[in-house]
Simulated scan of single mutants.
Amino acid sequence: MDVVIVDDNEINVTLLRHLVKAIEDTKAITFTDSAAGLQYCLENDPDLVVIDYMMPPPDGMAFIQAFRAHPGRKNTPLLMITANQDAEVRHRALTLGASDFLTKPVDKNEFRARATNMLLLRKSQKQLADRAAWLAEEVAKATNEVLVRERETIIRLSKAAEYRNPETGAHILRMANYSQVIARNLGLSEADQTLLLDAAPMHDIGKVGTPDHILLKPGRLDPEEMDIMRQHASIGYDILKGSPSPLLQKAAVIALTHHEKFDGSGYPNNLKAQDIPIDGRIVAVADVFDALTSERPYKKAWPVDDAVKFMHENSGSHFDPVCIEAFFRNWDEIMAIKNRFTD
């Protein structure tokens, strides 16, 4: 363990160096220039600092103050050696952060005992810090494993829905990545962007509860069939709600609200404007654009220019204008996503 000795008297430094060497598993690093010693202690991480009180600037008090003010030096043991018997000096040094005192002339047995105790304390501090770091790493691993399992659940449920849904897996990837672009341009945090990317594929999970003759109908749905189709938003919410998982919580909100419209004419709850959660407003833009530009059994894909016109024309009615602006802000990136995930 590293013991730094700072004393402007070379004889004192030599004596203290020999006393430190007598302690098992220690290395003495010595300075007769207190400024150089302080600089070393700030740039390195000593296990024990032994300093003299009376030194040219910085003296022992100034040394302690600067040392303790440095990040990561709050708990490093610091032993002050002084010939001053004044209680006020000791009180001030303790207030500034000295761990213990020795009075000159230094008794070698007392020094060895005090230094050894401080080094044992330092060793325990390091072991505790290492244990804390290990625990933090293990918690991070466990948390990541949970997130991986959650993402796998999302993917598998989304795939299950695909078997009954004319939409493709590429649609899910495109609309999820479109959603992430919008979220980023809206200034959402990276964590929220990632959560949205992972949750968006679940937006139509409720279609597992839609009868095949409606879900797979090649023509336009009649009013009664449309009412049944629209139930998929509530069904999806019922499937996903109540989970302690932030991912599934967000997926539930998206499933319920991605068919709401900015003017209040959407479903299932006729929410309007800011009453629609931001994730629902984002996914509404991403989902409709990709649906328009993708081929389905019941329709041909729209030309991109026609879809762009539709999105702009419905800004403020179907779509949140802010989300529309965020969607088109990085148009090259949107087109790159479209071309990357092909049906």
Results as ranks from 00 to 15, higher is better:
Ser179Trp: 06
Pro223Thr: 01
Thr168Phe: 00
Arg151Asp: 10
His213Asn: 13
Lys126Arg: 13
Arg156Trp: 03
Lys141Val: 08
Arg122Met: 13
Ala132Tyr: 04
Asp198Ile: 00
Glu145His: 12
Asp192Thr: 11
Glu162Leu: 13
Pro218Phe: 07
Val106Thr: 09
Ile155Gly: 00
Arg220Met: 07
Pro218Met: 05
Lys141Tyr: 03
Leu120Thr: 08
Val208Trp: 00
Glu190Lys: 10
Gly209Glu: 03
Arg149Asp: 02
Glu137Ser: 15
Asn117Arg: 13
Met118Asp: 01
Thr116Asn: 06
Arg164Phe: 05
His213Glu: 15
Asp204Leu: 02
Arg114Ile: 10
Met175Val: 05
Glu224Trp: 01
Gln125Glu: 13
Leu147Ala: 12
Leu120Ala: 09
Glu162Ala: 12
Asp212Lys: 11
His232Asp: 09
Asp130Lys: 10
Glu152Tyr: 03
Asp192Ala: 13
Thr210Gly: 04
Ala191Leu: 09
Tyr178Leu: 03
Ser124Val: 04
Asn109Glu: 14
Asp130Arg: 11
Arg174Thr: 11
Met202Pro: 01
Leu216Val: 04
Ala199Gly: 11
Met229Thr: 03
Val106Met: 06
Val106Arg: 10
Ile228Trp: 03
Gly206Thr: 03
Pro218Val: 04
Ala113Val: 09
Leu221Met: 05
Met229Ile: 02
Ala142Ser: 12
Gln180Asn: 08
Asp227Thr: 05
Tyr163Pro: 00
Asn165Lys: 01
Ile155Arg: 15
Leu173Phe: 08
Asn117Tyr: 05
